[in-house]
């Protein structure tokens, strides 16, 4: 553990992400105000003792909404990485092991997905399925599958060439068991690093989709949605935009640094794939 904290990226990233997580956890049991309670008398206020981050156009407490928004972002990050990771790793392993046409098919499919601008396709998906947080997560997950499939394929191929795999084969271990017992543990750190980075990307992507109105729907608090609403009142009350924006930057920076720090400590030679 000590060797992780010797890395500055990791330490800063760890602290920033931890604050986001703590804020999210607290919001589950307590927020300064009900995040959805409107108060017409206190509309568009700047920071004050009562409302440290001000209020929005309906008089809702921004601090409470930012905290609730953190839960939203973390759920999206976790779910998208979990889906992308599990499906992507499976495809990547199959690709690395079978090679030939299986590999070609999976990788060309990945290229196909990569060929489209992510946001554009996410818009397409959400406009077909209808805008909602679930569909936004689905759209992001679909983009994560090739990211993890490619990464897994690349590192798994290296491991599969190693002699201890031949040793396991000679011992009579079946190929899928080899993948599970030998290949996965040896690529886990690489996947963990990429997962952390994709977590940060997912937060940004969800904010983007929600900003466009395709993600989380009102009245639920989401950082992207809050930015969207703040846009109209930019000149009147810039606070409304500044704090959700800062929250996004904070969380994305935090998880990115965490990922970089993990990479530096766990795997200095690793080449980043997207």
């Amino acid at each position: 553990m000590k060797r992780f904290f010797r890395n500055k990226n990791f330490t800063v990233g760890f602290i920033l992400s931890l604050i986001v997580i703590i804020a999210a956890v607290i919001s589950l049991i307590w927020t300064p105000f009900d995040a959805n309670r409107m108060n017409a008398k206190l509309r568009l206020q700047g920071p004050s003792w009562q409302h440290p981050l001000g209020t929005d156009q309906y008089g809702r407490d921004t601090l409470s909404r930012v905290m609730v928004g953190a839960v939203n972002s973390i759920i999206v990050g976790l779910m998208t990485v979990a889906i992308g990771l599990s499906v992507g790793v499976l495809l990547g392993l199959a690709s690395a092991y079978y090679g030939k046409w299986v590999d070609e098919t999976i990788m060309r499919f990945s290229d196909f997905l990569f060929g489209f601008p992510a946001v554009l396709t996410a818009i397409l998906i959400t406009s077909i399925l209808g805008p909602s947080m679930i569909n936004a997560m689905l759209a992001i997950s679909i983009f994560y599958i090739p990211v993890f499939a490619r990464l897994t394929r690349a590192v798994a191929m290296l491991i599969w060439e190693r002699e201890f795999i031949v040793a396991a084969r000679a011992a009579g271990i079946s190929e899928w068991k080899i993948a599970w017992r030998h290949v996965l543990p040896n690529i886990l750190s690489t996947l963990l690093i990429q997962g952390t980075i994709q977590f940060a990307v997912a937060i940004l992507a969800e904010a983007g989709l929600s900003y466009l109105g395709l993600g989380t729907q009102p009245p639920h608090a989401s950082w992207g949605r809050m930015l969207n609403e703040a846009q109209t009142y930019m000149s009147l009350s810039p606070w409304m935009a500044i704090f959700p924006g800062l929250a996004i930057a904070w969380a994305v920076l935090g998880f990115n640094l965490l990922g970089d720090g993990l990479r530096d400590t766990l795997d200095p030679k690793m080449v980043r794939i997207r």
Binding site: R162, E163, F164, V166, A167, A168, H182, P185, N186
Partner: peptide, 12 residues
């Protein structure tokens, strides 16, 4: 195997 550094899984 020849190479005792390559033939043992480092994570086992």
């Amino acid at each position: 195997f020849q190479d005792p550094y390559a033939s043992l899984d480092p994570r086992m």
